[in-house]
Design a binder for these strands. Sequence first.
DNA 1: CTGAAAGCGCTTACAG
DNA 2: CTGAAAGCGCTTACAG
Lengths: 346, 346
Amino acid sequence: MRDVSRLAGVSTMTVSRVLADPELVSEETRSRVLAAIEQLGYLPNRIAGSLSSQRTNFVTAILPTLTNVNFADTAQGLTEALRAADYQLLIGYTTYRIEEEERLIRAMLPRRPDAIVVAGTVHTKAASQLLLRADVPVVEIWETPAHPINHAVGFSNYEAGRAAARYLLSLGHRHIAAVGPSTTGEARDFRGEDRLAGFAAVLREAGIGGGLVVQHGDVPASFDHGARALGVLLDRAPDVEAVFAVSDLSAVGVLMECHRRGIRVPQDLSLVGFGDFDIGRQVVPALTTIRVDAHLIGQRTGELLVTLLDEAAAGAEPAVVDVGFSLVERGTTAPAAPRRRSRRDH
Amino acid sequence: MRDVSRLAGVSTMTVSRVLADPELVSEETRSRVLAAIEQLGYLPNRIAGSLSSQRTNFVTAILPTLTNVNFADTAQGLTEALRAADYQLLIGYTTYRIEEEERLIRAMLPRRPDAIVVAGTVHTKAASQLLLRADVPVVEIWETPAHPINHAVGFSNYEAGRAAARYLLSLGHRHIAAVGPSTTGEARDFRGEDRLAGFAAVLREAGIGGGLVVQHGDVPASFDHGARALGVLLDRAPDVEAVFAVSDLSAVGVLMECHRRGIRVPQDLSLVGFGDFDIGRQVVPALTTIRVDAHLIGQRTGELLVTLLDEAAAGAEPAVVDVGFSLVERGTTAPAAPRRRSRRDH
DNA sequence: CTGAAAGCGCTTACAG
DNA sequence: CTGAAAGCGCTTACAG
């Protein structure tokens, strides 16, 4: 910048203005400065700028993984919404471990992000403290907590699970099960657990008992998880007629395992997934699922942050944005009665 | 930091040392400083540290998208390899546009990354200039260019395409086609195009003509792309007996469309994908594909950078690391002769 | 419309 | 083992 100012015959202050507020500088001076910038190939140093202005234009996003299309979509939505306001995303992966989340928060805070986005509402005690004390906006995403740390953008996983159960009941099914990964490992999918809890609650309310939940294998759920979980489930309950899988990945795994075992879907088994992944539309039959707009979660979060950071609104009200979910009925579910008869006769 | 030094009764220099090189400080002073840090909840400001030390410990990675498991795996591998050395990844998405890549490079350079990772070897002229002039290591990934800007970690997409063609020829197929997305849009997958070029070259060398390449639909390839491309292909060449898809996503789309149309795989059609995505192992039959270790590309890149940045080895030799690829034979491919007969008789 | 001064919070390079 | 001084490259807040 010194070099540019000397070449243009102005102060560094004027160079800084040309870059930040060009309209404050006379046209003649401005073009002289721009020419000098061009000639020297000058690139401003935003580290210095950040230190001076006390704003980094960084936003930190801490997600379970990027190897899940839903979270990748959220990251992409966030990136797009923040780009216009010139914010750069710093992404960290927890691999579904809250200890790792705490480590990441500690590693990120010294970079002085202008805002912090974390997936989920379950944190270590220390992480919660750090987030509460951070003097920047915090947004918890992929849930709608009753008591957010600050802001939240998501939907109710519990209600999504309830919706899946109500739907399978409405089809007339009674031997209903759910599959998800284990809840005893270090890696935990608390949002998935919420969905299964809501699912089981509806079954209990219907007097069916919500105990038929196979929790098996490591987080995160995968195609392979679904395939193996079906085996465990059938050993335990050969007469199961409907399954809710905690994720479309599991659900597709269940479906493929059904193909291999000669179990007809939906004639012998109704199947509901969660997440509306691309693959669910392509498999045969296409997968019934609960759709969540992951990209929108990212976008809304980005928009919320741009507003909060723009208006320097220190006193902004904590907001909880619910983007909702919807049940998408496709080919893997069917009413109960005809199926059970055909299966028993078989 | 001032507050900490006052509370501990030392200079800020000593506080800095406790954080950076604890062993240089006497145990007694150190514990006094650590107590003060604890008591005040002090978090160092790395922006100031970066400005002062002229090292940010940022590495910029510019990828086509994160919505593709392969690139997400690469990002995860990079993150893991860099974490140990305390580097933070700044990720940008180009959505397969080199103009967007240039924009991202311009946006990232003022953040003063210690190294730059870009996917691919095709850049705008201005982007190439910026990368050449950047006085930090540059690594091009997912290709093995003959003339890298600096370093490279990847494999030969052209050779991968050749391997697919040689394999289908070895099965006895002669009516062979390939499907990939369009090459005329703004978004381009140059690596996919290289694979198709290698594929077509082998067919030409075998005297078969390499013209049966369906390039249809927007980049990136998807399940949906594959499903639609098969329709276009069958209109053009109803007697096709083997297909190479530029990506497993397309390949699975082709497979599902075959299911819907009653085309038997592999009896009526042999199918080879690329990328070895999880879903390819789960579909029925399981997908024959070309496997690339995307995570390893990220890991090797990270290791290379840690070495380069550690030894302050300004004079380090440009390295090109080839992680290779391998053909994984599964259920979607079969020898030609029996199939053609059965199909004709049908 | 333009500039001189001070300072952001660290680390480098010395000195003792 | 510890500290005083200088400086990293910008922006803020004034002043003119």
